[in-house]
Design a protein around this nucleic acid. Structure first.
Length: 259
DNA sequence: ATGACTACGCCACGTAGA
């Protein structure tokens, strides 16, 4: 089973690119971020026509997450628990009912947090505390689960082209990295780092300043797995080639192959 | 270097992204 995460930076602007990628790579499950669309405006039909069940959690203009699956989805939950006043659409999860044991797939779009310090950074750190609480519950269940998405955190210096350029950024500040490591240290596996320790492995390149041709990227899209899911991990990769296409997202997909 | 992209939305230029 192949599960992928892709920050598409606008479903309306990116539909052709998304459909082409789905047809080529044929992930069994995909979580999407930055839909920037209300659910009622989401172009569901062309995606369903490719054989995907679809669950969205959108909002106007910003944010927005979705799960696509060739298998039936059950127990779909929208919104990260822990703050009933949080109106930003950044979390969706569901049970993927494949051939074997059900797999819980969580799709997340973690807040950017800039400028830091400030209220947006406070929101980011509070959101990460809630994420940790949800992860603790998933781990306590001792079931296969993956948390995939745009984490907006550069975990370590080797995950960015120029650490100095990012040292004051909310994506790389010590508080953000510490919160990410507290999450992983609960007992989750960073899928990409379990298959390679190569530096220069990125998932995002800014549109500005020729960041892509100069490979001035950062690794901020991650797949974290509970032990029961990590035991089934066969491979993990990044579809870097999509960044070379017409009208690309500034992110590229990351995927895992599981038994 | 007062630069720099792209998507969105009360459709014009401000906000947000990272």
């Amino acid at each position: 089973m192949k599960i992928a995460s892709f920050n598409i930076n606008g479903i309306k602007a990116r539909l052709p690119a998304l459909l082409a990628w789905l047809e080529e790579e044929r992930p069994d499950v995909a979580v999407l971020q930055e839909l920037k669309s209300l659910d009622e405006n989401f172009p569901a039909e062309p995606i369903q026509d490719l054989g995907y069940n679809l669950e969205t959690h959108g909002q106007k203009s910003f944010n927005g997450v979705a799960i696509l699956s060739r298998f039936p989805l059950e127990d779909v939950r929208r919104g990260l628990p822990g703050d009933d006043d949080d109106e930003q659409s950044r979390w969706i999860e569901a049970l993927v009912m494949g051939d074997g044991e059900p797999l819980r797939v969580c799709g997340l779009y973690l807040p950017n947090g800039n400028p830091a310090p400030g209220p947006k950074f406070d929101y980011k750190l509070a959101w990460m505390e809630r994420l940790k609480a949800r992860a603790e519950a998933l781990l306590a269940a001792e079931e296969p689960a993956i948390l995939a998405g745009d984490y907006n955190v550069i975990p370590q210096a080797e995950d960015c082209h120029d650490p100095k350029a990012w040292q004051d950024d909310a994506l790389f500040l010590p508080e953000s990295r510490a919160a990410f490591h507290r999450l992983v240290n609960l007992g989750l596996t960073d899928a990409l780092r379990s298959v390679t320790d190569a530096p220069g492995t990125y998932t995002f390149w800014d549109y500005q300043g020729s960041a892509w041709p100069r490979n001035k990227g950062i690794r901020i899209d991650h797949v974290l797995m509970t032990p029961q899911a990590a035991d089934r991990l066969e491979d993990c990769g990044i579809d870097t080639h999509l960044r070379d296409r017409e009208k690309p997202s500034d992110h590229v997909p990351i995927w895992v192959e599981m038994r």
